[in-house]
Design a protein around this nucleic acid. Structure first.
Length: 596
RNA sequence: GGGGGCGUAGUUAAGUUGGUUAUAACGCCGGCCUGUCACGCCGGAGGCCGCGAGUUCGAGUCUCGUCGCUCCCGCCA
């Protein structure tokens, strides 16, 4: 075919897509295939907006020029699949549509073929209405025709392509690891798969390819990555699905700085490539201790201030009973200053109490800094000196609202940290267009689990301790910091990793600290310990949550909006009906008998 | 396991202190219309008010239970 707009997507059913014809194509004879997005039947001339993933093209049926095609046009309905052939013509004066990529032209149809009819869809394939999520999930293939999901899925492809290209340039190899693998202790609940050939035994689906990527380092593969599904059988959230995708990476012969720098380049390439944004690498770094101190959370949203202030010194010798008893029980008192918050009503402040209660705080003390003095239910219990020191510590000015939580450190930090986020959002302190990246570093290795009365790994049991903290492993495990790091964007953790232990002796000490016996370690991780003893290089890595990254990149409020076929909050698929029961025969073969 | 929100034509929503025949917009069906692009005009059909109990003379509305979707806590190294 002779024309100046040959399309690389030309195929049996089309010479061009519905998104590429412009003024330059005028005069060409073209064939388009797509779906009927909309039709406008004037009795005489009929206009159809033909849609494919590339765009919309208006095709015109004129009774004088093509009576047969025009007769067919009257019968066309939403979402019919058409093939049309005709000439690209310029739109008449004054009818150019500037909202359409192809708005300068239209296709004057000479022949039309109905490739397939369509039932009236349960919802319209346009963006003018929010549709209930249950319907959208039941007819996901139709929802995927709509622009927001088309954009998300297409952008997701572009992101993974950019990542593959970037990592390829950095000498990374993409290597697949098993999906049917071994259940490991600690961590999330595993999804289990019964083994038919080994009755009574189960595979676990990987929570991440952690052990395999370390083994690949032992094998000498140096730099590995994988864009890989991971599975965790835990309850869902807006940003948590039972199967999700990680950008998983592992490097040999590196320290944290090497990894952080390379990864910043990757994130920067992604944002530049998708929407031309400079992410401002290198990103700031904050220690875990400082994050907790200033933000109350290990994933700080640094888009606004309103830092937490520790008031332990201010109230060191207070006689205010509530604060006194908290301090005496190793608790802490912290406050935040909501600038201009004194205008909040009593009701609004009560609502703030409800916010902190969710996170276990029992109360929320407050002080309004009014022009005629401090208004508060608790100030009467304070000494003059305490009031003065408090005002200074909090930077209190007329019009401010000071809010305090006094409780165990974990509760005080989380409650106030969450309250800070709540207020930041409610009071409009957050610039929605800002991208605030930061690294959180120097995580502790272990956390004391009150319930189980033992230490648990904060990251995972293969994380290396910082060299200078090695000798604290024995006598003060809680003080050992890890070579671990998280990347946080706007208060959401999008990636995390660590340098791993490559010395089997250190690994054994960590296992024993975690109360994993030699036998258990041998049974569960024997292959890893073995591998480490055959000349494992120093290595470390990181993994990113691709779904969360996409969610933030596209400004969506759930990862379901960036996943083609997501699950509901109950971890079911409304489209396929999974999970479902299976036949007695299948169960018999697996040696499984259902209770009840 | 726990707390909150939602559930009314195909869709999105309205529905007053419980009170006649449950509204609207879009969509759908029929008719008209030769330059529209959220086309327009005329007409029409369409309802297990999620489901089940209860209170009441009377329930879309109140109560309890249940199912589904959703947000959060727990959980997610």
């Amino acid at each position: 075919m002779e024309n100046n707009t040959a399309s690389r997507l030309a195929a049996a059913y089309r010479t061009h897509t519905c998104g590429e014809l412009g003024a330059a194509a005028v005069g060409s004879r073209v064939r388009l295939s797509g779906w009927v997005q909309n039709w406008r039947d004037h009795g005489g001339v009929v206009f159809i907006d033909l849609r494919d993933r590339y765009g919309l093209t208006q095709v015109v049926f004129n009774p004088e020029k093509a009576p047969q095609a025009h007769a067919t046009a009257h019968t066309l309905r939403s979402e019919f699949v058409l093939e049309v052939e005709g000439e690209v013509v310029p739109r008449p004066e004054g009818t150019v549509n500037p909202n359409l990529k192809t708005g300068e032209i239209e296709v004057m149809v000479e022949e039309v073929k109905i490739l397939n009819r369509a039932k009236t869809p349960p919802f319209m394939i346009d963006e003018t209405k929010e549709i209930g999520e249950n319907l959208r999930l039941q007819y996901r293939y139709l929802d995927l025709r709509r622009q927001p999901l088309q954009e998300a899925i297409i952008t997701r492809h572009r992101v993974t392509k950019i990542i593959r290209d970037y990592l390829d340039e950095q000498a990374f190899l993409e290597i697949e690891t098993p999906v049917l693998t071994k259940s490991t202790p600690e961590g999330a609940r595993d999804y289990l798969v019964p083994s038919r050939t080994n009755p009574g035994n189960f595979f676990a689906l990987p929570q991440s390819p952690q052990l395999f990527k370390q083994l690949l380092m032992v094998s000498g593969f140096d730099r590995y990555f994988q864009i890989v599904k991971c599975f965790r059988d835990e309850d869902l959230r807006a940003d948590r699905q039972p199967e999700f995708t990680q950008i998983d990476m592992e490097f040999s012969f590196v320290e944290p700085d090497d990894i952080l720098g390379l990864v910043e380049g990757m994130i920067d390439a992604v944002f530049k490539g998708v929407n031309g944004i400079d992410t401002g690498a290198p990103y700031s770094r904050i220690t875990y201790a400082e994050a907790l101190d200033k933000y109350g959370l290990d994933a700080p949203d640094t888009r606004f201030g309103m830092h937490l202030v520790d008031l332990g010194e201010v109230f060191a010798s207070t006689s205010f009973k509530v604060f006194r008893s908290v301090l005496d029980k190793q608790g802490i008192i912290k406050g935040i200053n909501l600038k201009g918050g004194a205008r909040l009503s009593r009701k609004e402040i009560d609502d703030l109490l409800e916010v902190v209660k969710i996170y276990g705080a029992k109360g929320l003390a407050w002080i309004k800094i009014n022009e005629d003095g401090w208004q508060s239910p608790i100030v009467k219990f304070f000494e003059e000196a305490e009031i003065k020191a408090l005002g200074e510590a909090m930077g209190a000015e007329t019009g401010d609202l000071l809010l305090f939580v006094a409780d165990k450190p974990s509760i005080t930090n989380e409650a106030l940290g969450r309250l800070r986020l709540h207020l930041g959002e409610k009071m409009g302190l957050i610039d929605e267009n800002q991208l605030a990246f930061c690294w959180v570093v120097d995580f502790p290795m272990f956390e004391w689990d009150e319930q189980d009365k033992r230490y648990v790994a904060i990251h995972h049991p293969f994380t290396a301790p910082r060299d200078e903290d090695l000798d604290k492993l024995a006598d003060d495990p809680g003080a050992v910091r890890a070579k671990a790091y998280d990347l946080v964007l706007n208060g959401i953790e999008i990636g995390g990793g660590s340098i791993r232990i490559h010395d089997p002796e250190v690994q054994a000490r960590v296992f024993s600290l975690l109360n994993i016996s030699d036998e258990e370690a041998q049974e569960k991780f024997g292959f890893l310990l073995d591998a480490l003893s055959f000349g494992a290089p120093p290595h470390g890595g990181i993994a990113f949550g691709l779904d969360r990254l996409m969610m933030l990149l596209l400004g969506r409020n759930s990862i379901r909006e960036v996943i083609a076929f997501p699950k509901t909050q109950k971890a079911t698929c409304l489209m396929t009906g999974a999970p479902n029961t299976v036949s007695p025969k299948q169960l018999r073969e697996l040696g499984i008998k259902l209770k009840g």
